[in-house]
Amino acid sequence: MAVLELSGVFKSFRTHLSIRRIQVLRDLSLSVQQGEIFGFIGTNGAGKTTTIKLALSFIFPDRGAVRLFGEDASRTALRRRIGYLPENPYFYDYLTGEEFLDFHARLFGLGVSLRRHRVRELLDRVGLGKRGDRQLRTYSKGMLQRIGLAQALVNDPELVILDEPMSGLDPIGRREVRDIILDLKARGRTVFFSTHILSDTEMICDRVGILVRGSLKAVGTIDDLLAGGDVPFWEVTLRGAPEDRLPCGRVVSRRLDQLLIRVDTQADVHRLLASLDGTASVISVVPARQSLEDLFIRESRHD
């Protein structure tokens, strides 16, 4: 079942005092399935946050439909099943971590004892167990991101929407967020997150969507998306080969008697290997596998 679904969505904004409208999303259709981790990637200004704001009805589409759990996304009651972390979250800095989480739990009408239990559990889960009694103004950026994540999980949501959850975090913080996302999936939850940090996406996402200037350029599993691309070149490592008699390829580096040679086509790889005599040995032949980053850059340039 589609947990989040956008079909044919257009969205434009008017800039300050100008009559001209800027088209942010163009005919965006997207569907996030139950139980998957969906990575929504795109450059700054591609329309990721706009898409998320549409899903939460902070803004409304010019055209098209946004649905959550098969129903119109603007229905307030649906938000009982959603958790959301905004990009660069700003919170009430006069509240302590505990007060902040308690306040958000109250909005779900949770009782006092359940709230107290949930707040404690969440603080531990995001690694802020001992800092809950401190005002948010004393928190570091990483801590704010974690308390933000905790408020997104306060209702044990079925769908968690995270806007740039990794931005501004150090490698340890990123790994912690990654682990929380994977833990949510293990609990059967659906996670939809936007990011421009591709290495994280590649590691944890079941599917990704690539958004370029308001249009979805590619969507699918990482394997499917990457398999579709050609291998752009091969790297052949040889030992004891005579550099001046190579039939093709370009020597990229030399170390002792080893040569690393970049070869452009598979036919050239065969030619190169056939040309070797008994004194040379082959160490490795590696096709340069396309990374998500390559795909992302290629899709962004195509436009």
Binding site: R80, Y84, Q151
Partner: peptide
């Protein structure tokens, strides 16, 4: 932007 986390609730 403190309003976002509130209005994302029911």
């Amino acid at each position: 932007r403190t309003v976002y986390t509130i209005l994302a609730k029911p």
